[in-house]
């Protein structure tokens, strides 16, 4: 091109290992790195943990003390026992919404551009985030469970409690990928917050999280019975009560896996598209 600089042959660089095994190893390594980063960020924003439990706490207190009498009397059961597993699932869903808004904010930060120019697995950018959020969710769920215990809630057994919280965390994790996909598509954090109203509230309220499906109008019952939040609430309720039903657990597992199968690749693809 020019005579100004002394041309030297570029050092031979080593090509990237693009074999399946190479990719898998890189993805795992990068996910661990991103998780490390996201956990530091989580620890530096303790207020996010407050946001993670606030909805669960609201629903627990409000529904129990405000609506509890009316709803409980109609169903002829102790409403708190019915309510708590539902609140767990709602807390997990709230965590997924946080993933959505948090990831949209991440995408608006310049650092995401750098991630795209790095020799790293792009899945790891989202996986680090969703796993870190699952950890925060787990802490939030334990706090909500402790509050429920204080309010007089009783688990059937400790093992049941552990299983219920584990299942709820898994469901929350799968919804986090849905949240990440929405964030990667929409990008603006405000817009993501608004949009979450559209999927969060119908799923939350037209579900068996707070009321049994048979108290709803007939046209709503099929949706309210089989939508993921209801399925999750029923399965978690079974684990809490010590009466796990295979159907409920299978359906809950199917929704969890189904959401992951769809939204892991979708969110990665949407993330990789230039805004």
């Amino acid at each position: 091109m020019t005579a100004t600089a002394q041309p030297t042959t570029a050092e031979p660089a080593i090509a990237a290992d693009v074999s399946a095994l190479g990719r898998l190893r890189r993805s795992t390594e990068d996910t661990a790195t991103m998780l490390w980063r996201d956990m530091i960020r989580t620890a530096r924003q303790p207020e996010m943990l407050v946001f993670a439990v606030v909805m669960g706490v609201f629903f627990l207190v409000l529904f129990n003390y405000v609506f509890g009498g009316a709803i409980g009397m109609g169903a002829g059961v102790d409403y708190l026992q019915f309510l708590v597993p539902g609140v767990f699932v709602i807390t997990a869903l709230q965590g997924a919404q946080q993933t959505s808004m948090g990831f949209a904010a991440d995408l608006a930060e310049g650092v995401t551009d750098r991630f795209r120019s790095l020799p790293m697995s792009q899945v790891a950018v989202i996986a680090g985030r969703t796993i870190a959020d699952a950890v925060r969710n787990l802490i939030g769920l334990i706090l909500v469970a402790l509050l429920a215990l204080v309010m007089g809630y009783r688990f059937d057994s400790a093992a049941g409690a552990v299983a219920a919280i584990a299942l709820t965390t898994a469901i929350g994790f799968s919804f986090s990928w849905l949240g990440a996909a929405i964030a990667a598509k929409v990008r603006q954090p405000d817009m993501v917050g608004m949009l979450s109203m559209f999927w969060l509230f119908p799923l939350m309220l037209a579900s068996t999280a707070f009321t049994p499906a048979d108290s709803m109008p007939g046209w709503l019952q099929p949706f309210a019975t089989y939508q993921p939040i209801s399925v999750a609430a029923d399965a978690v309720r079974g684990l809490c009560e010590g009466t796990p039903a295979t159907t409920d657990l299978t359906l809950a597992a199917a929704w969890t896996i189904g959401l992951l199968v769809v939204f892991v690749p979708v969110s990665v693809r949407l993330y990789q598209q230039s805004p």
Binding site: A10, E11, P12, A13, I14, A15, A16, V18, R37, I40, R41, R44, Q45, E109, G110, V111, T112, D113, R114, S117, L118, P119, M120
Partner: peptide, 29 residues
């Protein structure tokens, strides 16, 4: 460095450094 940008982006990413207009660093770290 000899790697085709369109065909072998992963190798390219190993040998480049990019500093953009907006400082691309993690603000919380």
């Amino acid at each position: 460095a000899g790697f085709d940008v369109a065909r072998d982006p992963e190798s390219v990413r190993q040998v480049i450094g990019l500093a953009g207009q907006a400082a691309a660093v993690d603000e919380k770290l």
